[in-house]
Every structure is written in C-alpha cells, then in structure tokens.
Computed example of a mutant assay.
Amino acid sequence: MKIQKEIIEFEEGKSFKLFSPSLKNCFFWHYHPETELVYVEASNGIRHVGKNISDFKDSDLLLIGSNVPHLNFDYKIQTECKQLVLQMRENFIQDFIFSVPEFDRIKKLLDRSYLGLSFSGETKHRVVEKLQRMKDENTFASFMGLIEILQILAQSDEVKELNTEDTRIKWFLNDKIRMGTIYDYIHENYDKAPNVNVIAGNVNLSTPAFCRYFKKQTNMTFTDFVNNYRINQAKLLLLQNSGITEVCFQVGFESLSYFNKLFKKYIGETPSAFKKKHLSKIAHP
C-alpha cells in the first residue's frame, strides 16, 4: 500500500485524455500531477480521496486535484463498474487556463480541487452527457467540450468538498507512511481478528495514541473501518454467488445476525436483497 506515482502518457498534440479504464484488479494508492475528473457507475463503492473515506451508490462524479493520493473507486469490489476518466496535462492548466482572465471561475474551481470535489444532481447528469459525447467528437470539438464541462462544474453549487485540509502528496509522504502499514495489516487480517494493540505497536504508538491518530486520519474508528472493509469484501463474495452464511464467516464475523445488521447499516439493504438485486442485474443487464 505504498503510494505510487502514476505516469500518465498523452497523445501528441492533445491537452487531455478521455478513456474508460479497467482497474478492478488493482488496489493501490496512487497520485499524479495531472488533475483528474472521474465518473464511476457502480451498484455500490467506496471513494477514498486524500483522507476522506466514504460510500457512494449508483454513481459518483469526482474532480481530484494535482498530486492528491487516491484509491480505485470500486475498492476491489468487482461489480459491473463502469468508469470514465478525463486527465488534463499539468501545463495545459498552468499555461492556458490560469492565464486567461475569462476562465477566472474555472481557475477558482481548480484551485480548490486539491480537497477532492464530489458533484451530484443535475450537474453530474449534464457533465456525464457531455463526457459521453466527447468520446466520439473530433479533437477541437472535444476540447471545447472540456472547457464547457469545467465551466459547468465551476458554476455548480451541487458540490461537496471531501477533505477539509490539504492532503497532497507532500503531506502524505510525511504522515501517510504509517497509514500504509495500517492498511496492509487490515488487508491481511480483516478475516481474522485485527488487534488494535498489535497494529498500534507496529507503528510505534500507544493504543490510545493510535486510536486518536487513526480517527484523525480517516474520520472513522479502527473498528468501524475494519467492519466497513469486511462488508465491502462481503459484497465481492456475494457477487460471486457465495452463500450468505459462508460469506459472513469468511470475512471475519462470528455472528450471522450481527453481519446482517451491519451489512444493512452500511449498504442500506440486507445481504440477501443485495445479492438478489445485483446478481440479477449482471445476469440480465
């Protein structure tokens, strides 16, 4: 779970790239100097941008600023996840957007994109429609489409800031190394009994100090994070048509009733309802 710098390659003569990635088997922290607009369409998922960890349902539209570490948006949950990613050259933003007075609102949007911005409602609908059209347009038309999208986002009030402070890579390199160790431990032990005392010792903190540190970094308790992780692993197994009781114990729960209760709390429906609905969608798209 070490943070990796992603090297993005662009076609010659183009200021941005628009594509549909296939990242379902990847699970890693990454960052890049290019600003990124991501549309994810999935039954359920977790966004993890900077220090923010939060669920989304059905779809999400995110603007992620330069050098903000983030994880894949299906969080290793292999649903019928569709993504559209638009990445802008760093020099395009610096040399073109920031130097044009008429783009003042867009500049302000990009200035705060380091917080991670999630868009909803009509804004999301309009932007996704334009992204879909841009895939089939010529270079100039798609470029103008990008400018229109940035203006729509800049004027929108249907936006949520995911972080309250700077979480760009410089901050993460100073502090998130501990979090990488913690994520590794959770990933390796979520199906057993992750012990807060053990991981606290692994990062050279007392247990109370570790609990304060973890809550500050993730806005979740260690127990809540582990349970959230377990439930999302359970989703993966349910979508592979595993039995509910089998899944419950496979992801580390000792009580089926507690598993059902937590699953409904996090996902909004019971494991059986989730499995029936989403396996039906996959079988009959």
Rank of each mutant, 00 (worst) to 15 (best):
G201R: 11
A209E: 07
Q83K: 14
G50L: 00
S272Y: 13
L110M: 00
S280V: 02
D191H: 02
K192Q: 13
T35H: 11
N232A: 02
N232R: 00
S22W: 05
S54E: 12
Q151N: 13
L262S: 07
F259V: 00
L71V: 03
F140W: 14
E254P: 08
M88V: 09
K14T: 07
N163E: 14
Y114W: 03
C248T: 05
A200Y: 08
K235Q: 04
N204C: 09
V198G: 02
M220C: 12
E6M: 10
S22D: 14
E6F: 12
M88Y: 01
I244Y: 09
F27R: 02
E188Y: 03
I53W: 10
H70F: 08
G50Y: 00
G13Y: 15
N195L: 13
R112G: 15
E102F: 12
N228E: 06
N91P: 03
T245W: 12
E11P: 12
K24W: 06
G13M: 15
K261T: 13
Q217S: 09
L205Y: 08
S22C: 12
K76P: 01
K76Q: 04
K192S: 15
D95G: 14
F263A: 03
H187F: 15
N228H: 05
Q155T: 11
E80T: 09
T164H: 06
V85H: 07
M134Q: 03
K14Q: 12
A200F: 04
G45M: 06
E246S: 03
Y185M: 11
D95W: 00
L239F: 03
T270Q: 09
P101H: 05
E34A: 09
Y190K: 05
E188I: 08
S156R: 02
V226G: 04
L86I: 03
N227V: 00
G145I: 14
H187A: 06
R168Y: 06
F98R: 12
L238N: 08
S66A: 12
E165M: 15
D184G: 11
H187E: 11
L146A: 12
Q151C: 00
A193M: 09
Y114P: 08
F96I: 00
R112S: 13
I149L: 11
N174K: 14
K24M: 08
W171F: 14
I7K: 13
L162S: 06
K277Y: 11
D184T: 08
V68Q: 04
H30A: 03
L117R: 00
A209T: 04
H32K: 09
K107Y: 08
I169C: 04
N25L: 10
I149V: 09
T181P: 04
G45C: 02
N25D: 12
G201A: 02
D224C: 03
I177P: 01
P69R: 02
G180D: 05
E6Q: 09
Y266M: 03
L109F: 03
V38Q: 04
L239P: 05
H30E: 04
I64Q: 00
F222H: 06
F225K: 07
P69C: 12
F249T: 15
T181K: 15
V198T: 15
K130S: 07
T164D: 14
L71I: 14
F103T: 01
D184S: 06
E158D: 14
E129C: 12
T139Y: 09
Y213H: 07
V196W: 07
I169K: 08
